[in-house]
Amino acid sequence: MKTSANANRVWLLCLLAICSITAQAQQYTPADQGSKVQFTIVNHLIFTSTVNGYFKGLKGSIRFDPANLKSAAIDATVDVNTISTGIGKRDRDLLEEKYFNAAKFPVMRIVATTVTATGKPSTYQLTAALTIKGITRTITFPFTAVVSSGALQLTGKFTINRKDFKVGPDNAIDDKLTVTLNVQAKKQ
């Protein structure tokens, strides 16, 4: 009987410790308004030009506490159908099967697997699973996180190879593209 009571106390203390650690990490919701998910790619169709575009429809959840990075979690999506490059015909083409296939894959998703400190103030390293067109690849990139009362701002930049995600069959555009994130999130 005494051993069972001690085991119950240990179990209760462990549960309280886990709840305490989880409670410390702040929960945030990304705000589409004020956030930017931008991309840049070079187009060589007629002459070389840089194409800039963005996605809207940012949704998801973020758990972040600089003092407890092991509890960090990011799970966010953007709506592929919101793509905008400033040229309507190009945007419609990018929604087609050979590019983003928005009818079958309407969202792109990023899910954090680890967040680590870099040693620089407010700067971290994110390793995440990025899913585009149903294909998931691991990406790693630095980002900054600024926590203020009731809000969190995450900024970062990474480069991917579009062919790793089977986006676009032609060689008129570069294989590499750069994604720039500026995410405004509100405390839940």
Rank of each mutant, 00 (worst) to 15 (best):
A172Q: 11
K56S: 13
M1V: 08
V146F: 03
G86H: 08
R137H: 10
D91C: 10
V111S: 03
T40W: 01
G150I: 00
A17D: 03
K56G: 06
F141L: 04
S149T: 14
N52M: 09
T159C: 06
R90H: 02
I173D: 00
K176T: 07
I173V: 15
G119N: 08
R109G: 05
L130K: 08
V183W: 12
N101G: 12
W11Q: 11
V146R: 09
T159Y: 07
R109H: 14
G57S: 01
A17W: 10
P142V: 10
L12S: 05
P169A: 15
L58N: 03
N52V: 06
K176F: 09
R162W: 01
F141W: 08
Q184A: 07
I110G: 12
V146D: 04
K120I: 06
G156Y: 07
Q188D: 12
G60S: 12
T144G: 13
L177V: 05
C14P: 04
F105Q: 01
C19G: 14
A102K: 01
I18L: 14
R109S: 12
Q24E: 06
S84H: 08
T116M: 00
V10N: 06
Q153F: 07
T180F: 05
L126S: 04
T127P: 06
T178H: 12
Q33E: 14
K104C: 05
A67E: 13
T114D: 14
S20C: 08
Q27R: 03
D175K: 09
T136K: 13
T22D: 12
S84D: 15
M1L: 10
T118W: 04
D91T: 07
L152Q: 01
D175N: 15
R109M: 10
D65E: 14
T136S: 15
D174L: 12
K70N: 14
D93A: 11
A185T: 06
D75I: 05
A129C: 09
G150C: 01
F39K: 11
